[in-house]
Design a protein around this nucleic acid. Structure first.
Lengths: 267, 267
DNA sequence: ATATTCTATTTCATAGAATGAAAGAACATT
DNA sequence: AATGTTCTTTCATTCTATGAAATAGAATAT
């Protein structure tokens, strides 16, 4: 089995003109991405300018996306449309990884009493795709589907532990560009945060959210670029570093089981 | 303020070649829609056949969508990708309609003690986009983002109460095609289910889900084709038809307030 | 009210991208 | 190993995606 990585730089590219494939679709997805980034309804001219394309082109893209419910329009402003909800539901209900992970997270959570989460890497960020609460639920709201940095938090760092220096550079650039890190942030600083070579789990305290401790392992996928990680998380008041690290073996086993389940299934 | 309706038939069209705009993007969205419909990973050749396009074209579409995380690939099979989660989150957090509706639903729910929901029409179906539970939460799982029929349930029927006969015909055809209704279903049968002209709310008992009663009103948008509806719902054991209908005035006011809020905001 | 500026939409000619046929790999099955 | 299937690449052709320019429509200023 093979895990295919992304073909080109995707949305977070530097700006160079990209390989020849499907220009119109790529541009359309840029518009769609921009609407998400904006977090508020956008006018046609804004979108055209931000995405660097002509007004007619932008308008035509929006019209088609609107036909499919991916974009809504009121007056002169455009926003993400309701069709993304069925899509998200379809993903959560049918994705083999997410479906397989749920009972496993459940088991880890009840065995350790901690909150168990599954993250997936998307571009130069990560996304929470499943979570099962332990004895003391985290009090900050469930960031399911939220874009989180790879550079901060155990579940992010473990995804970077084994990547090449080249890629680490890209990660730093993206983190700075997206505002997740200061502009002075360097690859060396990042490398220092990551687990030592040989250590297969990451630890974080107060990194992404204050008062939260976590440990995370990568879900093996046969490459040096894992795209999923599993984490145990707890508020400071109900766990210590030692307590969390006691959960690592269990977490490791869980990640291994998930990995095997996926290899096996031929979908 | 104007609510712009969809330009062409969208995804649920009969099969006629569509207006000239953005063929490649339209086809791409068809592929994306098909991946959702399938509910399981699909092989390239399956997708190409189902969507009626050549293998190379389908492959190129999938590659671009994959670059943006809208599609995932494992081995030879493709499925919806994790990028739909941030999109859905963006919609739920930022859509002016959904955001404005939440506190209003909250208020109606606490005043009536019933579960209050907001649906939006998407093509020939409807989608639950927000819900606040009342005193007796509904026991079936929250179908947020689930595609539900327009032909069944108070919140569906009220969206059809004022539409043209032509459109009603399309709705019937779509409901049959999607398996929501038997193939013997006719527009007349549907019309008989809908509220009488002049009545601005719909009632349903045991229609979409057994043991569930609901009433619904449309959110006015200045046209005869409302695209949102608001519903009060309750399990049979904790409410009667009369009890629910007592909530209609409150519901009507709530829908009116939502409508006004949206007119006012110039986003 | 009228002029002015900005934004959105349509039209149209052109470049270039999207497309499928066919060949070539890779994979699965016999 | 041999055959059949599925995937991927190549390439010539067509048609579509594209932006300039003109037109229509809003918004703002005068």
């Amino acid at each position: 089995m093979t895990v295919t990585s992304t073909h080109s730089a995707g949305s977070a590219e530097e700006g160079g003109p990209k390989a020849g494939n499907m220009r119109s679709l790529s541009r359309s997805m840029e518009v769609f991405a921009e609407l998400q980034r904006a977090e508020r309804p956008q006018r046609l001219s804004d979108l055209a300018r931000t995405c660097g394309m002509s007004l007619p082109t932008t308008l035509r893209i929006l019209r088609v996306l609107q036909d499919f419910g991916m974009v809504s329009q009121t007056d002169k402003s455009y926003r993400i449309g309701p069709a993304v909800l069925p899509a998200a539901r379809s993903y959560l209900e049918n994705d083999p990884l997410v479906v397989a992970a749920r009972p496993i997270l459940q088991q880890v959570a009840s065995q350790t009493g901690l909150t168990a989460s599954l993250y997936t890497r998307l571009g130069f960020e990560r996304i929470l795709v499943a979570r099962v609460d332990g004895d003391s639920p985290l009090r900050y709201d469930l960031p399911l589907g939220k874009r989180l940095p790879l550079t901060v938090g155990a579940a992010g760092k473990i995804l970077l532990a084994t990547v090449s220096d080249t890629e680490l550079g890209q990660v730093v650039a993206a983190a700075v560009a997206s505002g997740h890190e200061e502009s002075t942030f360097t690859a060396d600083e990042l490398r220092a945060r990551l687990p030592e070579p040989g250590v297969d789990y990451a630890y974080s305290a107060d990194e992404r959210a204050t008062g939260v401790l976590s440990v995370a392992v990568a879900v093996p996928n046969g490459t040096r670029r894992p795209s999923e990680s599993m984490a145990l998380t707890s508020p400071v008041e109900s766990a210590t570093e030692a307590g969390l690290e006691a959960g690592v073996p269990e977490l490791r086993r869980a990640a291994g089981r998930l990995s095997e389940l996926l290899e096996g299934s031929v979908y």
